[in-house]
Amino acid sequence: MKYKLYNAEDFLFDESFRQWVNGTSPQATAFWEQWLQENPDRADVVRQAKELAHTLENYYQDNATEARIDSELQRLMHQAAERRDETAEIPVIPLPAFSRWRWAIAASVLVILGLGIGLFIYSSDQIQEKSYAHLTQTAGDSLQEKINTSDQAMTVLLCDGSLVKLQPNSRLSYPKRFSATSRTVYLDGEGFFDVTKNPARPFLIYANQTVTKVLGTSFLVRAFEKEESVMVIVQTGRVSVYKQQDYERSTKNKGQQVQGIILTPNQQMTYNLADRQLMKALVEKPRAIAPDNVNREQFFEDTPVTKIFSQISKTYGIKIIFDEENLSACLVNLTFSNESMHEQLDVICQTIGATYEILDGQVVIHSKGCQ
C-alpha cells in the first residue's frame, strides 16, 4: 500500500489523513485507526505527522489571506535558496497548484526543509551582519563622514580628543557628540586610532563584520569592504575584537557571554570573511614599547637566560613562556645592540641549544635545559 512509503511530511498531503487529524470525518477516523492496527511499525511516523499537523494548525490560525500566505511563502523560499550552499544544485521550488489550501502550503514548507535548503524566518532574535552603508544609515545618532580621496593620510580629530589617521580611499563616520555610555564609529578602509582613555565610555569601531572595543589605546584597523579579510594591529594598550554578529547578539541578550580575541602590544588579529575565524598572531616585526632597552648596547655576562627572556618580554610587551626551573642553570655571555626581537631570540636559543615558536600571539621556548 502506498502509505507504507509515506514519511511524516507525505501524510500531510493526504486529505483523509488531514480529516482524521481535524476530526472532521468519521470515515477517515475509522480508516486510519484500522490502518494503524494493521501497520504498527508505522506508528512513530504517524505520530510525528500528527504532531506536525497540530503545530502547523496552531501556526496558521491567524486571519492571513491565502494570497498573502502564498506570497510570503514564495518570498521565503527564494530567500532560502539564495542562502543555500553555493555548491548545491537545488532550484527554487514553485508552489504547487493545490498550495491555495493552507495545509498543502505548510507541507510544502516541510518538503523544502527536507531537501536541505532551510527556511529562514526573520525573528527578533536574528542578527544580520550589516554593511558600512547600512550601519551608518540606521545609526541612532546623526553622523558626519570623512572620506580620504587624497593620496596621503588624513588626520581626523574626534570630539573626545581621540585621533584617527585615515588612509587613502578610506572613510570614517562618527557622531558630532558621543553618547554618555559609549563612543561608536564606523570604518570602511584603514585607520590608525589613538584613543583617549575613558573607562566609563568604551570606544567601539564597526568595520566589515567586526567590532573592535577599547578603553584607551593606539592601534591600526584595516577593513576595506572590498577585501576578504580584516586586520587589527595593536601598538599600545589592550584591544578586544569580536565578530559583529556575536557582539550584537550579546548586547541584545544581556548577560550572554561573547567570544572574542584580546590583543596586547605587537599582537594582531586577522578575520577571514570566508571561514569566519578570528586568528591571533604576532606582528611580523615587533616594535619595542620600552625603546630605551633597544637604543643602547646591552651586555650580559654570566646572566641567567631566564632574566634575558623576561627583559625581552618587557621590552616588546610580548609574553614569553618558558620552564624557569628547567632553564635556571643556563648562564650566557651576550651583547646586543640593534638586533630585532626575533634576532635576539635566535641568538639566545642557538647559544643554549633551544628553539622557539609563536603560538597564539606568544613566544614559547622549547629547551632541555643546561647541565
Rank of each mutant, 00 (worst) to 15 (best):
L263E: 10
C330V: 01
T181E: 13
A88T: 02
N58P: 00
M154N: 13
R102F: 13
T155D: 15
T217Q: 11
Y186L: 03
D141T: 01
A288C: 10
Q137A: 08
R102S: 08
D194W: 01
Y122I: 09
Q152H: 15
V294F: 06
N253S: 14
Q34N: 13
L135W: 04
D188G: 02
Q268S: 05
L359Q: 14
Y242T: 02
F203S: 00
A80K: 00
D70G: 07
F98P: 03
I312K: 11
L163S: 07
G255S: 07
V46E: 00
Q256V: 05
R84A: 08
A139N: 13
G140C: 08
E15P: 00
D41F: 09
A88Q: 11
Y6D: 13
V45T: 11
L110V: 13
A81K: 12
E82G: 14
A81T: 15
E38I: 09
L95N: 12
A223R: 01
S71V: 04
E325W: 04
P265S: 09
L331E: 01
K4Q: 11
D275Y: 08
G161T: 04
K314Q: 09
K2W: 05
Q298A: 13
E190Q: 11
H366G: 03
E227H: 10
S131W: 06
Y60V: 00
D275T: 05
K2L: 03
D323Q: 09
M341W: 13
V111E: 10
Q152K: 14
R276T: 07
T87L: 04
R42S: 12
M269T: 03
N63E: 15
F98A: 14
D188Y: 03
S142R: 02
P291I: 03
Q137I: 00
Q137F: 01
R276C: 08
F13M: 15
L76I: 05
S71D: 10
T355H: 12
K130A: 09
V111S: 12
V234F: 05
V364C: 12
T149P: 05
C159Y: 10
Y132S: 01
F322V: 00
G189Q: 02
L95E: 06
Q298M: 11
L278Y: 04
V364E: 09
Q48T: 04
L158H: 04
E225C: 06
L163E: 10
S340L: 12
Q128M: 09
S99A: 15
S150Y: 08
V332M: 06
I312L: 15
D14A: 08
Q362G: 03
L187N: 05
K254T: 10
K50S: 09
Y122C: 02
S340I: 07
G191K: 02
L166G: 04
G353Y: 10
Q245W: 10
L73D: 00
T196Q: 13
S150D: 15
V230N: 02
L163Q: 10
Y206R: 06
N169I: 01
I308E: 07
L282V: 01
R75E: 09
F178W: 06
P304E: 11
G237M: 07
R296Y: 06
G361T: 00
Q344H: 09
N198W: 14
E15T: 07
T149A: 11
E57K: 08
R18H: 08
G23E: 07
G116I: 02
S71P: 00
Q245C: 05
G361P: 00
G118V: 06
H134F: 12
N63I: 05
M1Y: 11
Q79W: 12
A107Q: 05
K146S: 09
